[in-house]
Design a protein around this nucleic acid. Structure first.
Lengths: 244, 244
DNA sequence: AAAATAGTGTCTCTGAGACATTATGTG
DNA sequence: CACATAATGTCTCAGAGACACTATTTT
């Protein structure tokens, strides 16, 4: 049996099959000043010269798409894994034959969330020789900028996914440090949903069930001190509702 | 400007880049007798000889993954598009380097839903030369069968997606004819969730808001006649809740 | 009439939103 | 004390589930 299988693998003659170049595209989100930002690259060459594009790169022969996405994220931010907390998940795959006029490129888009305290964005690598990635406000980009390839569709898909997911999970906490106040969390929701209509009191009550109070408090410029929370482990990525 | 771009496209020398074979895998669901079924192929050759596998095939050079999924679905069922109503959507992409021991194959998994009246499954093509696809009960397969490659993961991902999606959309109606009774719809929910605990009365009240009563009724063996409904257009794929 | 099924009524509980109120800090 | 913010209380409303009840068919 083992021999039959070995035989097969040896006999197997690589057939004619269509082959494609496989890449990952990243939508990297982070929040500053209650505004949702994403990392973009300004294209210096054709096609789509001068337009904004999402960072990305080829998937190596010995890695899967998720590994490649983490590697690209690290190359772009220079983050030591674990220094910045990060969350990466697959979004969707874009395979339209004409999406890159130069050749057949199939791209697995990923959603990446970087933690910030809401006051500053993570540093981006100044870029080797190629153009460096830069943070830009997502809603302004969507309103005013031209995006290369099918990257507008990828960006809106990522935004929809994030906006939907924080409705029923605590994924929003992945955009914050390990410990955070309800004020910070609320600002993340406002950033993602591009709104300022979130009642602070109701928000507190709604969230505290899935959070753990560290007992410590932190002060702001004015007002009462705010409690520091962490996400209760059982609510980290899975649903906040439907507690199994 | 046009010249500069043309110049670039001409000058563009195809670089060295890793290339992969791109395929689609299909999880095709249909319901019979309140039991969720999926289409499988029994493997006749190595690797995974004798195990069950999902149907699928290569993505052609001039089609995207979704088009290839529709083509494979048609080849497998012999359905004239529109004769059987069908729903196909992208699920996720599987790109682990070792997932096929023969070569580097990246597969875009798709979820397909076929309409039945709940009493019989759509015919599957008897297969050209290769093994024909066959319907099998999903929960029994997951409990008792060995699945080839990473197809167990794909199948459970498809099932999770479907089970979750029918909670807040009317996607379940894609497993039924254009017009259906609440009894049929309830049986679909029971099939997908593998349960029989759905109160008929509450189910009716919950669903009727998103349905349109055709005014016609249909009889069963016993009991009162049941009204025929269709899905109100505005609720077809998008959410039943959150009415914008 | 008896049985089975379709559909409605009723009650309770829970969660969300609107909004007021109390508590705790700073200048 | 004035002010700002955190957190809680209160009220209302809508939706879901448990369960009883009525209506409509077949045998």
């Amino acid at each position: 049996m083992a021999t039959e299988e070995e035989q097969f693998l040896q006999d197997y003659a690589p057939r004619e099959y269509p082959s494609v170049a496989l890449t990952v595209d990243l939508v990297v989100f982070a929040v500053k000043a209650s505004t949702l930002h994403a990392a973009f690259v300004r294209r210096g060459g054709h096609p789509f010269k001068g337009a904004l594009a999402l960072p990305g790169g080829f998937v190596g022969p010995d890695e899967d798409a998720l590994t490649a996405a983490w590697r690209e994220l690290q190359e772009e931010t220079g983050l030591e894994l674990g220094a910045h907390r990060a969350h990466v998940e697959q979004l969707a795959t874009y395979s339209s034959p004409g999406r890159d006029p130069r050749m057949r490129v199939v791209s697995v888009a990923h959603l990446a969330l970087l933690a910030t305290d809401g006051s500053a964005l993570p540093a981006l690598n100044p870029g080797t020789d190629t153009e460096a990635a830069q943070w830009m406000p997502v809603y302004e980009v969507l309103a005013n900028e031209t995006l290369a390839f099918d990257h507008r569709g990828i960006l809106t898909a990522a935004l929809d996914r994030l906006a939907g997911k924080i409705e029923y999970t605590l994924t929003a906490a992945r955009l914050l440090p390990e410990e955070f106040t309800l004020y910070q969390l609320r600002r993340v929701y406002q950033a993602v949903w591009n709104t300022d209509k979130l009642d602070a009191g109701n928000f507190t009550r709604k969230m505290t069930g899935a959070l753990r109070d560290t007992g410590r408090k932190v002060l702001r410029d004015k007002g009462a001190p705010a409690a520091l929370f962490t996400v209760r482990d059982e609510y980290l990525s899975p649903p906040m509702m439907r507690p199994v």
